[in-house]
Amino acid sequence: MSIEKRAAKPPNRLLFFAAILLPPRFTPMSVRYDRRYRTLDKYRFIAGFLAIPLAFYAIFVISPFIQAIYYSLTDWSGGPIANFVGFDNFVKMWNDERFWDSTTTSLTLLVIAPVVTLVLGIFFAYMITAGGRHRKGQAISGVAGSSLYKVVYFFPQVLSVAIIAVVWGRVFNTNAGLINGGLDLVGIKGPAWLGGEYGLALIAVLTVICWSFVGFYVVLFSAAMGGIPKDIYEAALLDGAGRGTTFFKVTLPLIWDTVRTGWVYMGIQALDSFAIVLVMMPSHAMKVTPVFLYERFREGQFGYATAIGVVLLLLSVVFSLVVMRLGNRDRIEY
């Protein structure tokens, strides 16, 4: 292609835009040699790859969020009419004791559940990867049977949440449950775990949440700990570090990023805990915010329910930001 054929003046605008859809072969020379054609071709290339995923993301992720935010500002009750009511739903929520009751419970779970689960998870994972006796030729090793434990810890993750809730509901049953049955054998009359005191109900829910998630974190943290080079442990060992020192000075700092991610994830799980509470708890004994939201939905107060949903979204975001900020340390490269 010779220089002479290049058009002297820029192509007309219409032709240029038409070129967006044309393959290069059919694009007129005048356009192809335009200075701007290269930019056009580049972005066309990117857009071609991104159009479908972006459209999916927009339709199935972003649009529901925006719709929810819009509906939280209306009095929609499931019918064809949704009147715009401004922040009325949020004012109502502020004055609604039931919202505060359920949110107090949710926030309590948000604070306690991740701490308990992560501490247990890290402890078990450490025992599995580095908690055993020193064997010959190895700087670290897990406790006896650790590979079996890893599998067993993961079992609850395989079960559906609904099944976990039903089974634990039976375990906590006042008159026929496993716990009170056991207490009965030693002559203690067990309390009403689920339908009685609020504190007991909270302990019951915490137990189930921690039990069902701890296995996941054992596996997650074992993987993270497995990634730490053995020679670091060896060096620590040579310097005379015991198990405790090794854990706090070597293991924990090196898996900190994973811990932080796990903390955010577990916090959001605890903030939700919808299925477990809905299936296991009698609704009069204890509620978490998502259950309260669900009940508003069932009563046809869709606008109010979505407003609660928006607040939950904000809570999750704030929680994640706080954890990311608090847990921010310089990353150690290894």
């Binding site: 006042t174 009403a192 339908g195 299936v279 296991m280 009698p282 004994a285």
Partner: peptide, 11 residues
């Protein structure tokens, strides 16, 4: 008292 699960009425 007791019968506090979701199936409490049956129990």
């Amino acid at each position: 008292t007791g019968f506090d699960g979701p199936q409490g009425h049956t129990e």
